[in-house]
Amino acid sequence: MEVKRRGRLEIIADILRSIHDKGGRIKPTHLLYKSNLSHAKLKEYLEMLVEKGMIEEQVVKGKKAIIMKEEGHKFLLEFDRIKEFSESFGL
């Protein structure tokens, strides 16, 4: 059976979708479990997403949470459109 590796964009979309599915706020441990990435890799991606303004990290009552920002929502919408376009037009 062929196992297709996720590309960089798919990984970003999966991370953002995990946050989105949890109402826009997720615990880092939960995200680590959902994203199916190593701790180091996830940290690398999260730093990049913070830099791009797609997410932000907040500490509420001593607990860390990852919050999705407007740019993250925009990316996810565009990613879904590209995916649909690609599927519909057989690409």
């Binding site: 989105h20 706020r25 919050i67 929502h73 919408l77 459109r81 649909e84 376009f85």
Partner: peptide, 11 residues
């Protein structure tokens, strides 16, 4: 495809 609106944004 372009009519698709963003889903519930949560917070």
């Amino acid at each position: 495809i372009f009519k698709k609106k963003p889903k519930n944004r949560g917070l």
